[in-house]
Amino acid sequence: MIKKHFSIFLLLLILITFASIVGAILVGSVNISPSIIWDVLCWKLGFTNSLTEASIAQSTIIWEIRLPRILLAIAVGAGLSISGAAIQALVQNSIADPYILGVSSGASVGATAVIILGAFSFLGNWALSLAAFIGALIAVFIVFLLARVGGRTSIIRLLLAGIAISLIFSAITNFILIMTKDAGGMKAVMHWMLGSLAGAKWSNIQIPILVCIAVFLFLYCFTNSLNALLLGEETATTLGISLEKFRLIVIISVSLLTGVLVAVSGTIGFVGLIIPHIVRILVGSHYRYVLPSSALIGAIFLIWADTLSRVIIAPEEMPLGIITALCGGPFFIWLLRKEGYTFGTND
């Protein structure tokens, strides 16, 4: 049904995304009305010369705080969802999420080193993101090396190596945490590990947004190959896919994207796992439908999850990872129990 009118479905999702952006700006401790948003937007984009309705404070809250944060939520939600969808094709298994190759544990080591040990302090504000990103890539690189046997990438080794490296890197993170006497630092690390978009600024959201768009377009070029991957290694090869090359492409692009996202937002669980599932219920498994739908639904989901995290225990912030797991977990269990939903034909 949806597939027949897919462009209408996409249009609807885009409209909901825009409505969510507006809605999320409205919610918060400072009261804001839609006309004020309009006023600020016109002024910031240079259509009007001065604010008519909004105050400078409101303009700052909208333009400098809430909007960048929402845009980051879109990039993270969309990015994690398409990464999850692509990784699930790579390993031909629906239990995979974007962190399965060790990205999050590697990033955690980097972040902990910066927060607790003060590493990379010469980089100033960029230290945390950069260290997390480097940690993520190191972890994925090791996992990838371990999974290579005789010039081929073994998927089961990739998964197992991912688990092993995640355990080792988590142990390192925990070791640093246990040894420290800095309680504030520990709390900061906890907050980072559970994910937060509170650090969003115009200066640090550009890279995640650009990488997200680039990887999306890139993967979208390869929808036929992603589909073929789901048919198994042998069949994919007989359909003309260069298995090794294509896997490498997927691993690199997904690691880059999740690495960049983790660096700014910490590890936000569940999104990359459940959004592709929801999308498959709606549009089936064909990646021409799965990729754009995942990106938009993931973005909408994270906009609202982040909004909830801002207001639920205001003025404190609830870590985003807790919200996504608390919303995502029960839904996932419902999905598991639902008859007629298969996780694959081996089910």
């Binding site: 048919l231 198994g232 003309g240 694959g344 034909t345 081996n346």
Partner: peptide, 21 residues
């Protein structure tokens, strides 16, 4: 691979598909 797949088609023994199409 690609050129070969234009010349030879294969029906392997495996018939399960990881996700439904």
């Amino acid at each position: 691979e690609k050129q070969f797949a234009k010349e030879v088609a294969v029906v392997t023994q495996e018939s399960s598909v990881a996700f439904d199409f």
